[in-house]
Simulated scan of single mutants.
Amino acid sequence: MWKVHAYYGFGPLSAYLAVNYLDRFLSAYELPQGNAWMTQLLSVACLSLAAKMEETEVPLSLDLQAKFVFEARTIQRMELLVLSTLKWRMQAVTPFSFIDYFLHKLNDGNAPSKLSVSRAVELVLSITRGVDFLAFRPSQIAAAVALTVLGETHIVEVERAMNFCTHVEKERVLRCCELIQDMMLMRDMSHKTAGSSISSVPRSPIGVLDAACLSYRSEDATVGSHATCHESSPANKRRRISRLPFS
Protein backbone atom coordinates (compact mmCIF):
# COMPACT_ATOMS: atom_id res chain seq x y z
CA MET A 1 0.00 0.00 0.00
CA TRP A 2 2.72 2.47 0.99
CA LYS A 3 4.82 1.76 -2.09
CA VAL A 4 1.89 2.33 -4.43
CA HIS A 5 0.90 5.47 -2.53
CA ALA A 6 4.41 6.88 -2.89
CA TYR A 7 4.68 5.84 -6.54
CA TYR A 8 1.61 7.84 -7.57
CA GLY A 9 2.39 10.74 -5.24
CA PHE A 10 -0.94 10.65 -3.42
CA GLY A 11 -1.50 13.13 -0.61
CA PRO A 12 -1.03 12.25 3.07
CA LEU A 13 -4.77 12.23 3.73
CA SER A 14 -5.25 9.47 1.16
CA ALA A 15 -2.71 7.31 2.98
CA TYR A 16 -4.34 7.94 6.35
CA LEU A 17 -7.83 7.22 5.01
CA ALA A 18 -6.67 3.97 3.40
CA VAL A 19 -5.27 2.74 6.72
CA ASN A 20 -8.39 4.00 8.51
CA TYR A 21 -10.65 2.01 6.18
CA LEU A 22 -8.45 -1.05 6.60
CA ASP A 23 -8.47 -0.90 10.41
CA ARG A 24 -12.21 -0.25 10.64
CA PHE A 25 -13.01 -3.05 8.21
CA LEU A 26 -10.85 -5.60 10.05
CA SER A 27 -12.47 -4.64 13.36
CA ALA A 28 -15.91 -5.46 11.94
CA TYR A 29 -15.19 -8.24 9.43
CA GLU A 30 -13.04 -11.34 9.92
CA LEU A 31 -11.07 -12.42 6.88
CA PRO A 32 -10.32 -16.14 6.36
CA GLN A 33 -6.99 -17.15 7.88
CA GLY A 34 -4.03 -18.20 5.77
CA ASN A 35 -4.96 -16.26 2.63
CA ALA A 36 -2.35 -13.54 2.13
CA TRP A 37 -3.90 -12.58 -1.19
CA MET A 38 -7.11 -11.49 0.55
CA THR A 39 -5.20 -9.04 2.73
CA GLN A 40 -3.49 -7.69 -0.36
CA LEU A 41 -6.83 -7.39 -2.14
CA LEU A 42 -8.27 -5.53 0.84
CA SER A 43 -5.31 -3.12 0.83
CA VAL A 44 -5.79 -2.38 -2.86
CA ALA A 45 -9.51 -1.78 -2.35
CA CYS A 46 -8.95 0.55 0.63
CA LEU A 47 -6.31 2.56 -1.21
CA SER A 48 -8.56 2.79 -4.26
CA LEU A 49 -11.46 4.08 -2.16
CA ALA A 50 -9.24 6.58 -0.35
CA ALA A 51 -7.84 7.87 -3.64
CA LYS A 52 -11.35 8.28 -5.03
CA MET A 53 -12.27 10.31 -1.95
CA GLU A 54 -9.28 12.67 -1.99
CA GLU A 55 -7.35 12.65 -5.25
CA THR A 56 -8.29 14.54 -8.40
CA GLU A 57 -6.60 12.00 -10.66
CA VAL A 58 -7.07 8.35 -9.77
CA PRO A 59 -5.38 5.56 -11.74
CA LEU A 60 -7.21 2.41 -12.69
CA SER A 61 -7.65 -0.09 -9.89
CA LEU A 62 -5.55 -2.55 -11.90
CA ASP A 63 -2.59 -0.17 -11.55
CA LEU A 64 -2.82 0.00 -7.74
CA GLN A 65 -1.36 -3.47 -7.25
CA ALA A 66 2.15 -4.30 -6.10
CA LYS A 67 2.34 -8.07 -5.55
CA PHE A 68 -0.76 -9.98 -6.62
CA VAL A 69 -2.68 -9.15 -9.81
CA PHE A 70 -6.47 -9.09 -9.45
CA GLU A 71 -9.11 -8.46 -12.06
CA ALA A 72 -10.90 -5.12 -11.98
CA ARG A 73 -14.24 -6.72 -11.09
CA THR A 74 -12.62 -8.57 -8.16
CA ILE A 75 -11.30 -5.29 -6.75
CA GLN A 76 -14.69 -3.65 -7.26
CA ARG A 77 -16.43 -6.44 -5.36
CA MET A 78 -14.02 -5.95 -2.46
CA GLU A 79 -14.63 -2.19 -2.58
CA LEU A 80 -18.38 -2.82 -2.28
CA LEU A 81 -17.78 -5.15 0.65
CA VAL A 82 -15.71 -2.47 2.40
CA LEU A 83 -18.34 0.19 1.69
CA SER A 84 -21.18 -1.93 3.01
CA THR A 85 -19.21 -3.02 6.09
CA LEU A 86 -18.34 0.59 6.92
CA LYS A 87 -21.95 1.59 6.15
CA TRP A 88 -20.69 4.04 3.52
CA ARG A 89 -19.16 6.28 6.20
CA MET A 90 -16.04 7.20 4.27
CA GLN A 91 -15.53 10.82 5.34
CA ALA A 92 -13.55 9.93 8.45
CA VAL A 93 -12.27 12.40 11.03
CA THR A 94 -8.46 12.32 11.09
CA PRO A 95 -5.65 14.12 12.97
CA PHE A 96 -5.24 16.29 9.87
CA SER A 97 -8.59 17.86 10.79
CA PHE A 98 -7.03 19.29 13.98
CA ILE A 99 -3.30 19.58 13.35
CA ASP A 100 -3.40 23.15 12.01
CA TYR A 101 -5.46 24.30 14.99
CA PHE A 102 -3.07 22.86 17.58
CA LEU A 103 0.05 24.06 15.75
CA HIS A 104 -1.36 27.60 15.93
CA LYS A 105 -2.57 27.33 19.52
CA LEU A 106 0.60 25.81 20.94
CA ASN A 107 2.72 28.33 19.02
CA ASP A 108 1.17 31.32 20.85
CA GLY A 109 -1.24 31.93 18.00
CA ASN A 110 1.53 32.33 15.43
CA ALA A 111 1.40 30.58 12.08
CA PRO A 112 3.57 27.45 12.07
CA SER A 113 6.48 27.20 9.67
CA LYS A 114 6.34 24.99 6.60
CA LEU A 115 8.96 22.79 8.22
CA SER A 116 6.74 22.28 11.28
CA VAL A 117 3.73 21.41 9.13
CA SER A 118 5.79 18.97 7.06
CA ARG A 119 7.20 17.37 10.19
CA ALA A 120 3.71 17.05 11.68
CA VAL A 121 2.43 15.32 8.55
CA GLU A 122 5.38 12.94 8.66
CA LEU A 123 4.68 12.03 12.29
CA VAL A 124 0.97 11.48 11.69
CA LEU A 125 1.72 9.08 8.84
CA SER A 126 4.29 7.26 11.00
CA ILE A 127 1.69 6.88 13.73
CA THR A 128 -0.66 5.05 11.36
CA ARG A 129 1.79 2.12 11.37
CA GLY A 130 1.61 1.72 15.15
CA VAL A 131 -1.11 -0.38 16.76
CA ASP A 132 -0.77 1.40 20.12
CA PHE A 133 -2.15 4.63 18.68
CA LEU A 134 -5.51 3.10 17.77
CA ALA A 135 -6.68 3.79 21.32
CA PHE A 136 -6.41 7.58 20.89
CA ARG A 137 -8.85 10.01 19.34
CA PRO A 138 -7.72 11.96 16.25
CA SER A 139 -7.78 15.21 18.24
CA GLN A 140 -5.54 13.70 20.94
CA ILE A 141 -3.07 12.49 18.32
CA ALA A 142 -3.04 15.91 16.65
CA ALA A 143 -2.36 17.68 19.96
CA ALA A 144 0.44 15.24 20.83
CA VAL A 145 2.01 15.59 17.39
CA ALA A 146 1.88 19.40 17.56
CA LEU A 147 3.44 19.35 21.02
CA THR A 148 6.20 17.02 19.82
CA VAL A 149 6.96 19.01 16.68
CA LEU A 150 7.13 22.37 18.43
CA GLY A 151 9.25 20.83 21.18
CA GLU A 152 11.86 19.86 18.58
CA THR A 153 12.48 23.47 17.54
CA HIS A 154 12.15 25.39 20.80
CA ILE A 155 11.43 24.90 24.48
CA VAL A 156 7.76 24.28 25.19
CA GLU A 157 6.28 24.57 28.67
CA VAL A 158 4.05 21.53 28.79
CA GLU A 159 1.76 22.77 31.55
CA ARG A 160 1.23 26.11 29.85
CA ALA A 161 0.77 24.50 26.45
CA MET A 162 -1.81 22.05 27.76
CA ASN A 163 -3.93 24.97 28.99
CA PHE A 164 -4.68 25.71 25.34
CA CYS A 165 -5.88 22.14 24.80
CA THR A 166 -9.18 22.62 26.59
CA HIS A 167 -11.15 20.18 24.44
CA VAL A 168 -8.88 17.14 24.84
CA GLU A 169 -7.90 15.04 27.84
CA LYS A 170 -4.52 16.18 29.13
CA GLU A 171 -3.46 12.75 30.40
CA ARG A 172 -4.28 11.09 27.07
CA VAL A 173 -2.31 13.69 25.12
CA LEU A 174 0.73 13.29 27.36
CA ARG A 175 0.51 9.51 27.08
CA CYS A 176 0.37 9.81 23.30
CA CYS A 177 3.45 12.07 23.43
CA GLU A 178 5.32 9.38 25.35
CA LEU A 179 4.44 6.76 22.73
CA ILE A 180 5.60 9.09 19.96
CA GLN A 181 8.93 9.59 21.74
CA ASP A 182 9.31 5.82 22.13
CA MET A 183 8.49 5.32 18.45
CA MET A 184 11.11 7.86 17.34
CA LEU A 185 13.71 6.36 19.69
CA MET A 186 13.15 2.87 18.32
CA ARG A 187 13.36 4.16 14.76
CA ASP A 188 16.63 5.98 15.45
CA MET A 189 18.11 2.87 17.05
CA SER A 190 17.11 0.70 14.08
CA HIS A 191 18.63 3.23 11.66
CA LYS A 192 21.90 3.28 13.61
CA THR A 193 22.02 -0.51 13.70
CA ALA A 194 21.35 -0.74 9.97
CA GLY A 195 23.94 1.94 9.25
CA SER A 196 26.66 0.25 11.31
CA SER A 197 26.04 -3.13 9.68
CA ILE A 198 26.14 -1.58 6.21
CA SER A 199 29.31 0.40 6.90
CA SER A 200 31.14 -2.73 8.07
CA VAL A 201 30.55 -4.53 4.76
CA PRO A 202 33.06 -3.81 1.95
CA ARG A 203 31.46 -1.99 -0.96
CA SER A 204 33.42 -3.66 -3.80
CA PRO A 205 34.83 -7.09 -4.73
CA ILE A 206 38.33 -5.74 -4.11
CA GLY A 207 37.24 -4.62 -0.68
CA VAL A 208 35.88 -8.10 0.02
CA LEU A 209 39.19 -9.69 -0.96
CA ASP A 210 41.16 -7.18 1.09
CA ALA A 211 38.94 -7.78 4.10
CA ALA A 212 39.34 -11.54 3.72
CA CYS A 213 43.13 -11.28 3.43
CA LEU A 214 43.29 -9.03 6.47
CA SER A 215 41.16 -11.43 8.48
CA TYR A 216 43.35 -14.37 7.53
CA ARG A 217 46.50 -12.43 8.38
CA SER A 218 45.10 -11.38 11.72
CA GLU A 219 44.07 -14.96 12.48
CA ASP A 220 47.53 -16.25 11.51
CA ALA A 221 49.17 -13.62 13.66
CA THR A 222 46.89 -14.49 16.54
CA VAL A 223 47.55 -18.21 16.19
CA GLY A 224 51.28 -17.58 15.94
CA SER A 225 51.31 -15.39 19.01
CA HIS A 226 49.30 -17.97 20.97
CA ALA A 227 51.67 -20.73 19.84
CA THR A 228 54.71 -18.72 20.86
CA CYS A 229 53.13 -17.97 24.19
CA HIS A 230 52.27 -21.63 24.82
CA GLU A 231 55.71 -22.90 23.80
CA SER A 232 57.48 -20.41 26.00
CA SER A 233 55.56 -21.56 29.05
CA PRO A 234 57.03 -24.61 30.88
CA ALA A 235 53.70 -25.30 32.57
CA ASN A 236 52.00 -25.58 29.20
CA LYS A 237 54.74 -27.92 27.97
CA ARG A 238 54.22 -30.21 30.94
CA ARG A 239 50.46 -30.13 30.45
CA ARG A 240 50.78 -31.16 26.80
CA ILE A 241 53.30 -33.92 27.60
CA SER A 242 51.10 -35.36 30.35
CA ARG A 243 48.21 -35.67 27.84
CA LEU A 244 50.17 -37.80 25.34
CA PRO A 245 48.59 -41.27 24.94
CA PHE A 246 51.85 -43.19 25.35
CA SER A 247 53.18 -41.34 28.39
Rank of each mutant, 00 (worst) to 15 (best):
M1P: 05
Y8K: 03
G9M: 10
F10I: 02
P12Q: 03
L13K: 14
S14D: 01
A15P: 02
N20D: 08
S27H: 05
S27R: 11
S27Y: 09
Y29I: 09
L31I: 05
L31F: 07
L31S: 03
P32W: 09
P32G: 07
P32C: 01
M38V: 15
T39H: 11
L41P: 04
L41V: 04
L47I: 05
L49T: 01
A51V: 12
M53R: 13
E55G: 11
T56Q: 11
E57H: 12
L62Q: 11
Q65E: 15
V69Y: 12
I75Y: 13
I75Q: 05
Q76R: 08
L80E: 07
L81G: 05
L81H: 15
L86W: 05
L86T: 00
A92Q: 10
A92N: 07
S97E: 02
F102Q: 04
L106N: 08
D108L: 11
D108Y: 06
N110C: 11
A111F: 14
P112R: 14
L115A: 13
L115C: 10
A120P: 02
E122Y: 13
T128G: 02
G130P: 00
D132P: 01
D132E: 14
L134Q: 12
A135G: 13
P138G: 00
P138M: 04
P138V: 08
S139C: 13
Q140H: 06
A143I: 04
A144V: 07
A144M: 02
V145E: 06
V145I: 13
L150E: 00
E152I: 13
T153K: 05
H154P: 01
I155G: 00
E157G: 06
E159Y: 10
R160P: 06
R160F: 04
N163Q: 07
C165V: 09
C165G: 06
E171M: 15
V173H: 00
L174Q: 04
L174N: 10
C177S: 09
C177Y: 03
E178V: 09
I180R: 06
Q181E: 09
D182C: 11
M189N: 14
K192I: 11
K192T: 10
S196R: 15
S197V: 15
V201R: 14
S204W: 06
P205G: 09
L209C: 14
D210R: 12
A211S: 15
A212I: 07
C213V: 15
Y216G: 00
S218G: 01
E219K: 09
D220L: 15
D220T: 10
D220C: 14
D220S: 10
G224D: 08
S225I: 04
K237A: 07
K237E: 06
R239C: 07
S242K: 10
L244Q: 15
S247V: 14
